[in-house]
């Protein structure tokens, strides 16, 4: 990977009673989830990368640019804070325009952000009158409108009830897809990680771990669409997910956590999908094997060695599909 495409750092930050230390190279595409339990240093890492921790020692490079001594206002990081931090003395519109004016965002781009986040109806409102989910959307829009080169999201779902999460999540994937932005996403939620992560950077006790690939995913074109569902063809099987799409659209499917590799088809099952796969060898990580499906290779949990080329079945209790910020979830059905 060339230097132009990564955010690399080697940092040490000593705070009272806590030390954050480690190095990593984060590819500047897709969503990188910074994971770890509360107090592990995830947020501190994000803050240090954004230039908000002046006591941090070491170096940060963004592509070819040295960020080590660059003040936060020059880094062009779109930072969405956990607590929103909207300017309460300004309307929603002035909040969104704050960064846009300082980074000379064209009006058309600004309108695009407002449209993508469905904020047209609330531009005149004050932050105090917004619901939790609305405030997160405004904070996201404010960050996007400032023409960021990378988006930092600090637990943007914390404190939202599941319904509001479902409301905000699609906007985040849409931001990453439509605006082509690399996203660093701090979260301790397995659910969000499973849904969003292209890769994962674990942080534990202030130590930054080694980068891991995100959960397995499959890219498949829609074979049939209509009637509130989209259908894919996988290794001769017909797989249907609820959702709206068009034939030929490329969707991303994620088997999610808890998938099981089996030598024989389980027959009648409550699993969301049973996918025919081919063993492709051991994975570097322990207790994982690599499998191939439709010409795509990924790693799944597996307890024993399989001969390369052996035909297997991947039983997925859950399967999620997404296209451009629209997520469809299938928990229990499997099309025949």
């Amino acid at each position: 990977m060339s230097a132009a495409e990564v955010l690399s750092f080697d940092l040490r930050l000593e705070l009272p009673g806590f030390t954050l230390q480690g190095a990593a190279e984060i590819p500047l595409r897709g969503i990188t989830v910074i994971s770890g339990s509360s107090g592990s240093g995830k947020t501190t890492l994000l803050r240090a990368l954004a230039g908000l921790e002046p006591a941090a020692r070491g170096h940060v490079r963004f592509g070819r640019q040295d960020w080590t001594h660059l003040p936060p206002e020059k880094r062009q990081v779109g930072f969405v804070f956990q607590d929103g931090r909207l300017f309460r003395h300004m309307s929603v519109e002035r909040n969104i325009r704050y960064g846009a004016r300082r980074r000379a965002t064209p009006e058309s781009e600004l309108r695009e952000v407002i449209r993508a986040l469905d904020l047209e109806g609330m531009l005149a409102r004050r932050p105090a009158s917004l619901s939790g989910g609305e405030a997160r959307r405004v904070a996201l829009a404010r960050a996007l409108a400032s023409r960021p080169r990378v988006l930092f999201l600090d637990e943007p779902m914390v404190g939202l009830d599941p319904e509001r999460r479902g409301e905000v999540l699609p906007y985040i994937t849409r931001a990453a897809d439509e605006f082509g932005l690399a996203v660093l996403y701090v979260s301790h939620s397995q659910f969000e990680k499973g849904l969003l992560a292209d890769r994962e950077l674990p942080v534990a006790g202030g130590r930054i771990g080694a980068m891991r690939d995100g959960p397995a995913r499959l890219e498949l074109p829609v074979a049939e669409a209509g009637g509130g569902q989209v259908v894919f063809r996988v290794g001769g099987e017909r797989l249907a997910l609820p959702g709206e799409g068009e034939v030929g659209q490329l969707w991303e499917l994620r088997p999610g956590h808890g998938s099981i590799l089996a030598g024989a088809h389980p027959g009648a099952t409550t699993a969301a999908a049973v996918l025919p796969v081919v063993a492709a060898g051991r994975d570097e990580a322990p207790r994982r094997v690599r499998v191939r499906i439709e010409g795509q290779e990924f790693s799944v949990p597996g307890e024993r060695d399989y001969a390369p080329g052996e035909k297997l079945w991947l039983i997925c209790p859950r399967l999620r599909g997404r296209w451009r910020g629209g997520w469809a979830r299938q928990e229990k059905q499997r099309a025949k």
């Binding site: 908000l52 206002e73 880094r75 804070f81 704050y98 960050a143």
Partner: peptide, 24 residues
């Protein structure tokens, strides 16, 4: 918090003081 938010949005310290801290 809001001063940090202003800085990530491209405001210098003086700018953030004038447009955020002072009005608040």
């Amino acid at each position: 918090g809001v001063m940090e938010a202003a800085s990530t949005l491209g405001a210098s310290r003086l700018d953030a003081f004038r447009t955020v801290a002072l009005p608040l």
